[in-house]
Design a protein around this nucleic acid. Structure first.
Lengths: 141, 141
DNA sequence: TATTGCCCCGCAACTAAGTTGCAAAATATA
DNA sequence: TATATTTTGCAACTTAGTTGCGGGGCAATA
C-alpha cells in the first residue's frame, strides 16, 4: 500500500515526503471525496494547515486528484483515475452528493452526457453533480 | 424597473427595504451570475457586508435567486425564473462559465439531461456546469 | 397619519478559510 | 557524504463568513 503511494509520487516527479505520503494514502483508503477540512483532520494534527493546502494544490496540478464543485462553498477533492496526465486530465465522469450523509462519490462508470451549446459558444469541459440519496443511506432506512 | 423590484419582494412577502431593492435590482440589470464579492462591490459601499450576506440568504430561501456551483470555492448567484416557488424551485437548466472572461450564465433553454444512476441510488437534483468560451469572447478574438 | 409591533440593518467581535515570505529541515543528486 | 534543491512549519496577514444585540425603518391597524 505504501509502495503504491511512493510509486504515484515518483511517477509524477514529486519528492516523497511524509505529508504527501500521508495525504495521498488518505485518498487511496477512503471511499469517496474529501473536503479540505476532512483532510486536515484525518491527515492528523501533525501537519501544518499550510502544508495541507500546498500538498492538495500540488496534487491537483499534477492531476493526481481533481476537484468537485458544490453549491455550498466547500470544494471537495477526489482521486483521479490512472489515465489522468498532468494538466490535461479526463474528468468526464459524474459526481454524486448524498443529501443524507453528505458523502461525495465519483460515479466513474457514468459519463457526462453530450451538451449542445447555443451558437457562438465553445465547449471545453462539462461538470455534472447529481444530488440524492446514496446506496448506503437507502439500505439503512 | 423599480416597480418590478418592489413587486418581486412583495410577492415573496418580504419587507421592501433599500438594500433588498438595490441588490435585487443588480440581478435584474446585470446579465449573468454574480459572486458574493461582485455584489458587495457593485451594490455600493453603502451596505454592510453582513447585510449582503443576509439578503442573499433570504433571496435563496425565497427562491428568488439560486446558487451555481464552481470548482474554485466561489459560489455564484443568479436570478431564478418566475416559476420558481419558495423552497422547491425548478433549477433544471444548465450553467455556463466562460474560461476567458469568467462570466457565468444561465442557459435557460438547455435543460439538464437525464442521468441513470446505479442501483440503490435515488436522484433528487442534477447540476450541470459547462466550461468553455462564451459568445462575446469568441466574437472578439 | 399616528401608533404599535415586528422585522431588518449595521456595528462589533469573533471564528474559519486561505495566502505569502522566510528560515530551517528534509529530500534528491552526484 | 556533501551539496543543491524542495518542502515544511511558523508567523503574520488578508479575506470570507457568522452571531448577538441595540437602534431604526417598515408594515399593519385604527
Amino acid at each position: 500500500m505504501i509502495l503504491q503511494v511512493d510509486d504515484i509520487l515518483r511517477r509524477n516527479s514529486l519528492s516523497v515526503t511524509e505529508s504527501r505520503k500521508k495525504i495521498l494514502n488518505l485518498f487511496l483508503t477512503v471511499q469517496g471525496a474529501l473536503a479540505h477540512g476532512d483532510i486536515e483532520r484525518k491527515a492528523g494534527e501533525k501537519f501544518d494547515r499550510v502544508t495541507v493546502y500546498r500538498t492538495l494544490q500540488t496534487f491537483v496540478e499534477k492531476g493526481i486528484i481533481h476537484t468537485i464543485p458544490t453549491t455550498d462553498n466547500s470544494v471537495r477533492y477526489a482521486l483521479c483515475k490512472d489515465n489522468c496526465t498532468e494538466g490535461h486530465h479526463h474528468d468526464n465522469h459524474i459526481h454524486f452528493i448524498c443529501i443524507k450523509c453528505g458523502s461525495t462519490l465519483c460515479l466513474e462508470d457514468i459519463l457526462a452526457p453530450e451538451i449542445l451549446l447555443p451558437k457562438g459558444f465553445t465547449l471545453s469541459e462539462i461538470e455534472v453533480v447529481v444530488k440524492g440519496i446514496c446506496r448506503d443511506c437507502n439500505s439503512k432506512k
